[in-house]
Design a protein around this nucleic acid. Structure first.
Lengths: 144, 144
DNA sequence: TACAACTAAGATAAAAAGGTCTTATTATCT
DNA sequence: AGATAATAAGACCTTTTTATCTTAGTTGTA
């Protein structure tokens, strides 16, 4: 569904959010350990997220990644996906046609449009904040 | 959503179905032209579809690919997707976790499960036959 | 039976995605 | 100020996906 980069990006953001709620910054290494991702690759993805203002980073010792508490309930999954994978997921045709739209649709256009719209809706309505809840209570997990 | 191979596979199957309904076989070359796909790559995909009994091929002059009329209304999109991409789409975790299930879910497990189930449902209920209808009447397209 | 028109299959190549490594830069603590 | 611990950035490598090429095999028809 998403690229690997995007999957890591979402997981990383959720983890940073959890820690930020407790007032902590998180180092690159800690994030990679916690979400079980390759360190160097994760670094790149985090840079993208910083560039897109989803989180910010502090350099130097005792530095790390953090999200403003206020922002945690504002950030939507859709923003993360957009930052990393772009908007192809919403726009692209299910059968790979370049020009596929309501006036010149592929045979599955309508059926796919519904699924995609549901997905979009879900991503736009899901905040990072609500995803942190289960983690704090040990009901959900970010690795294995 | 699907691999390129799978997209070509679906398009090819629909085109072969349309022709089969009119009693024609379709050559590899004709299929590739009609769905605007690379010939050699399409050949491989068609071989997979034949192997999975979604269509059959006849060698020699005046040969080509064909689907039994009876079968056209029986084949579901899900069978084509399964033949080429396997069942990863239904099973895999939205965040890429290897073990992600109801008892040990990732934070977005439930939300993704719903989307995936809808997709699965749609694929399993959509027959190739119904996708041929729009093509015959010029309402839908397989290229551009 | 030989030729033409086609598919079958596997080796190879190119492109994209995934992942690593190195060097530079920044900030803090001593 | 200097050592250190962190991020930033981009070059580089690896794997997977996508696509091509080549050779072999099949079959209907003249």
């Amino acid at each position: 569904m998403f690229s690997k980069a995007c999957e890591y990006g979402i997981r990383a953001t959720i983890h940073v959010a959890v820690q930020s709620l407790e007032g902590n910054k998180v180092s690159l290494k800690a994030i990679a350990t916690e979400i079980d991702s390759p360190v160097a690759f994760t670094a790149k993805i985090l840079q993208q997220l910083v560039k897109h203002h989803i989180m910010h980073s502090v350099m130097g010792p005792a530095g790390g990644f953090q999200i403003e508490k206020k922002k945690i309930s504002e950030i939507r999954l859709s923003q993360i996906v957009n930052a990393i994978d772009g908007d192809a997921i919403y726009k692209s045709c299910g059968l790979g046609l370049k020009e596929c739209n309501a006036t010149k649709p592929c045979p599955v256009h309508d059926k796919f449009a519904k699924i995609r719209d549901d997905l979009k809706e879900m991503l736009e309505h899901t905040s990072v904040a609500e995803l942190t809840v289960g983690l704090e209570t040990g009901l959900t997990f970010l690795k294995r």
